[in-house]
Nucleic acid binder design. Structure first.
Lengths: 218, 218
DNA sequence: GTCGGCGTTCAGGCAACGCTCAGGTCGCTG
DNA sequence: CAGCGACCTGAGCGTTGCCTGAACGCCGAC
C-alpha cells in the first residue's frame, strides 16, 4: 500500500511496484490510509511522513503492518523517533531501486524467516545484497553506492535491453535534472571494475541502450 | 511473553524478539498477564514493574516462569526486593541489545544446563558473552559497556551490512535523541582498541554503514 | 573516403561524508 | 569533594563519490 498526498509520487511508486509484480493499493491521506489498511490488511505500507491531515507516525501506530517511511532528507531528527523494529525509511528524493530494495528487505525480515539467498549471479559475476559485496571471477570488487545500484539494476534485469532513460529513472533520484551522460560515465566505471575480463557481460546496443548478459555459446 | 501497558514499548519488544526467532505473546496489564500465562505457560516473561492494575511483583508471584523485570532507572530500592532466583531486571530506557542479552542469559540459566558456547569468533577476534571479555590476536582488550554492546552487535551480524540507524536502534537506548555521530565515534574507539592489527575487520561502507567481516582471500 | 552522430574515457570542481580530537557533563568512587 | 571513567557533542580536516565538459574513437551512411 502506498500513501502519499502528491499524485505524482503516488503514481510513480504504484506503477513501478505493480510492474514488479506487487498488488498495490493507494491512499492520499492519513484517514484514508488507516481506513483502507483496516479493511485490506496490506503486507507493507509505504508511507509519507508529511501528510495533510495526520502525522505519518500517528498513522503507523494505527496500522498493523510494517512501514517504509518516506521522509525529507534533512529530517534527521524524526527518523529514529518513529521507527519501530521492522520498519525502515527512505529519504526523498529517492530512486526506485532504493525503494524496491528496502521493501524487499522489510518483507524478508518480517515474513520469511529463512532468509532466501539474496545473491544474484550472472556467469562468474556475483552480487550479495546483504553484505553489499560484488565478485567477478573470484575476486572481490569495491563499488561506490551509485555503481552498486547500477550493477544491481543490470543484474535484476539481466538479459533485458535497458534504455538510458529507463536506467536514469530507476537508479537515479526522481528529481535528477541532468542528462543521460552520467549513465555512460557510470557504465564506463563499471566496465573497468567488473567487466575487465572475458567474457564481457555489459554490451552496448547502439542508439538503444545496454544489456547485461552472458554471450551466447555459439 | 511481553507485558507492558505502553503499546510502543510492547510493539518494540515483541517485533524485535519475533525477528530474532522467538514466539511472542503480549499482555497490556496484570490481569491479562496472569490469565495468558496460565493458559500458555511461557518460558519467560518480560514484565514492566509499573502496571495500571497490579504491581509487577504481584504478577510475578502468580506466574510460574522466570521473569525479566523492566524498571525505572531510579527505582534502586524495588529492584532487589522482588527478585527471585532465576529472575533478572533491565532498567528503562533500555537498548534492544541489552534486553536480548538478558533474556538469553535467563533462559540459559533456567532451562539449558549445558551452557551453549557463548563465545563469538570472527578471524582472530573473540568475544565471550558470559565473561564480558574480548580478545584480539591473543591479547585481551578492555572495553567500556557501550563499546562492548556495539562490538557484540557487529559480531552477531558479522558479514552483514549495518546502517547507522540500525545500529542506533539496537545498541543505544530507545529514547536516545541524538544523531548518528555517536556511532562514528564509537566505531572509531573500537577500531583503535580491537582493530589496530591486520587483517582489518571493521569496514566502512560509504553512505551505507559498516560491516564486520574477514577480508576475502582474493 | 569523409562526415556526423554516438559512445567512451579522462580530468577537474564541488559537495557530502566520515574520522578524529578536544572538551563538557554526568555519575561513581575513594 | 576531588578524581576518574564513560558518554556525547561539535568542529576541523582529509577523503570519496558525483557530475560536468571536453577530447578522442568507433561506426555507419552517403
Amino acid at each position: 500500500m502506498v500513501v502519499d498526498d502528491e499524485p505524482s509520487i503516488r503514481d510513480l511508486l504504484s506503477a513501478s511496484l505493480r510492474f514488479s509484480g506487487f498488488d498495490v493499493l493507494t491512499a492520499a491521506d492519513g484517514e484514508e490510509a488507516v481506513e483502507v489498511a483496516g479493511r485490506a490488511s496490506p503486507d507493507l505500507v509505504v508511507l509519507d511522513v508529511m501528510l495533510p491531515d495526520l502525522d505519518g507516525f500517528e498513522v503507523a501506530r494505527r496500522i498493523d503492518a510494517p512501514v517504509l517511511f518516506l521522509t525529507a532528507r534533512d529530517a534527521t531528527e524524526d527518523k529514529i523517533a518513529g521507527l519501530r523494529v521492522g520498519d525502515d525509511y527512505v529519504t526523498k528524493p529517492f530512486s526506485l531501486e532504493e525503494v524496491q530494495a528496502r521493501i524487499r528487505a522489510v518483507l524478508r525480515r518480517t515474513r520469511g524467516e529463512g532468509s532466501p539467498a539474496t545473491r544474484l549471479k550472472v556467469a562468474d559475476l556475483e552480487l550479495d545484497e546483504d553484505a553489499r559485496e560484488v565478485w567477478r571471477a573470484g575476486r572481490q570488487v569495491r563499488l561506490s553506492p551509485t555503481e552498486f545500484k547500477l550493477l544491481h539494476y543490470f543484474m535484476v534485469n539481466a538479459g533485458r535491453a535497458l534504455s538510458k532513460a529507463q536506467i536514469l529513472d530507476h537508479v537515479w533520484n526522481y528529481d535528477f535534472g541532468g542528462d543521460a551522460g552520467v549513465v555512460e560515465s557510470y557504465v564506463s566505471y563499471l566496465r573497468r571494475k567488473v567487466d575487465d575480463v572475458e567474457p564481457r557481460l555489459i554490451h552496448t546496443l547502439r542508439s538503444v541502450g545496454y544489456v547485461l548478459r552472458e554471450p551466447p555459446a555459439g
